[in-house]
Design a protein around this nucleic acid. Sequence first.
DNA 1: AATAACTTGCACATCGATGTGCAAGTTATT
DNA 2: AATAACTTGCACATCGATGTGCAAGTTATT
Lengths: 230, 230
Amino acid sequence: MTDTTTSPRRASRPPRAPRRDAAENRVAILDAAISELNHDPDASLETIASAAGLSRRSIYGHFSTRDELVAELNDRGIARVTAALAPIRHSDARIALALVGARLWSEVEDVRVTAQLAIRGPRREIVGNGLEPVRRGVLDLVRQGVEAGQLRTDIEPGTLARLIEGAALSVLDEAVRADISRGEGHRLVMLVALSTAGLSWREAAELIDASPELTLAAQPDASHHAGDTE
Amino acid sequence: MTDTTTSPRRASRPPRAPRRDAAENRVAILDAAISELNHDPDASLETIASAAGLSRRSIYGHFSTRDELVAELNDRGIARVTAALAPIRHSDARIALALVGARLWSEVEDVRVTAQLAIRGPRREIVGNGLEPVRRGVLDLVRQGVEAGQLRTDIEPGTLARLIEGAALSVLDEAVRADISRGEGHRLVMLVALSTAGLSWREAAELIDASPELTLAAQPDASHHAGDTE
DNA sequence: AATAACTTGCACATCGATGTGCAAGTTATT
DNA sequence: AATAACTTGCACATCGATGTGCAAGTTATT
């Protein structure tokens, strides 16, 4: 049990601090869970545990139920997404939307589980609540863009916002499927977001290339092949 | 057991024909399964049975295992998709792609389960095989369009084909979520497919409005199941 | 009206997964 | 070196779901 009793009992020796390896294992479990649940949303604790290099029993030392583990995953995902998207503000809604895609992309692995949980499955409603602020943000961007005459007006903003969200998700799916490089996926998700928003592919490319924020965002490391477009 | 023993035993009275209500129940089960699995891909047989107005036990009179039921659902879905998409051929790949979206849309309810199964979950590979021909078809269309200079060239055809597929799927998701009208969804799925393919929203609208095949396809009214095969 | 086809409800076996308790081992920390 | 923190393996209880057998009921069809 990792439970750290914070309440100091008087007239008793101070309890020893929790061990470091335990904390590492906790992280290992979370990482393994993310990875396994990406492949199969119903992966068992047994599967997750062994992917983390631990026994199933040990998981219960860190999370008292499976649901608690998943909830924690979800919270972290939401926190990351929120943190990544919060600072985005731009006079050009198109650029802002592309940025949303780009930032999301850089969180792919960790965020995908959350996204999936939020969209499908019986808990959709409950889990999705945490993402509400993010969705509102995207919706606001869409509205802003529509008013500025930069985005399509043939689809109702609310719907459009969700479609953009969905389009971005398919890029994440494709990324997992085809093991896309970081740089490639980065550009891809921006292109798709802009396309869904109504731009032609040439307009999208132009916008991205002309905008320093967007090209810069592509740099942050290319763990795979950094190779430019062929 | 619905098992119709076709082998005629000599020197015995001909076995009575299977009853009609049994066939109806079978259909009811399939329909209920489609509907329930749309909400929760892991819906139990109990849930499906009661949605069909039958007892769980009765399902085993029609399907010997749960997997068999799901497999049948899947086969039907594939058959319908294949049948709906096969006749599509058009000199303009853009129109053909929009048609793909439109035809898919008209099968929404029945097809969504199949699509989900094909994309997510541990059986992805296996289930997806049946859709291979369809996917090749879309890929061919994309290639055709790229060669004709009608579609975007900044995304590799294979990837683009899957992204279009994914975009269409999000419309289906949105449809279930927001209970979109048939006519609206019809147009939506075409717009999104074309947008993902690289057209600007104005180009897409123009193309759709100028093309009789596409506008006509929108008509087929809101009548539900036009009548099951056989 | 007779009969086969079907449905239902119950009891039961089985499976995979979750979650607990405990004793015996390891390992980080003091 | 001592000790608390942690992990492990086992046994066990429980749960929800699948699948079967069977006897007793219904209902379509002849």
